[in-house]
């Protein structure tokens, strides 16, 4: 399992977590390179399909990093995102996949340390779960 190098997609909101990732970089904090960040204008833009498609293509985990509760620039984008993540979790459970492969975190722009911490946490979790059962990708 040690040579398992997971591929994890993280949708980052430009108002919070994307800036937090930047902050982490400025602070020269180390976090695993397994995290592939995709910037979104708001996590409310992250659709069920945006979470399902990477899984279909073989990603080992898909996460959403949204603003703190009550801090969404568009008021409720983070709340919508949470509901969609829950929907996908239920879907994965229904087809016998680990729902822990998807998840959502709330974080603010200033929390560079917290971002690095979450990146470690996610990577560890996915490493524990092992590779996605979906094949047909370049490993």
């Amino acid at each position: 399992m040690n040579d398992f190098d997971p591929r994890i997609v993280v949708y980052c909101c430009k108002y919070c977590s994307y800036t937090a990732a930047d902050t982490a970089g400025c602070l020269r904090l180390q976090y695993p390179p397994n995290i592939h960040i995709i910037q979104v204008p708001c996590t409310g833009r992250v659709d069920i399909l945006h979470i399902l498609r990477p899984i279909e293509e073989g990603a080992d985990g898909v996460f959403v990093a949204a603003c703190l509760d009550g801090d969404c620039h568009f008021l409720t984008g983070n709340v919508q995102a949470r509901k969609r993540v829950e929907y996908v979790k239920r879907t994965l459970e229904e087809i016998g996949m680990e729902p822990e492969r998807v998840g959502i975190y709330n974080i603010s722009a200033g929390q560079g340390h917290r971002f690095a911490e979450i990146a470690h946490e996610i990577t560890t979790k996915i490493k524990e779960l092992g590779p996605s059962p979906i094949h047909g990708r370049d490993k």
């Binding site: 659709d47 399902l52 094949h135």
Partner: peptide, 21 residues
């Protein structure tokens, strides 16, 4: 259209998981 996309992705994931296309 959107629900069609979601179901298509879900069915494909479920099949791929069993190693089938």
């Amino acid at each position: 259209e959107k629900e069609v996309g979601i179901l298509a992705a879900t069915l494909k994931i479920a099949r791929k998981k069993e190693g089938k296309e």
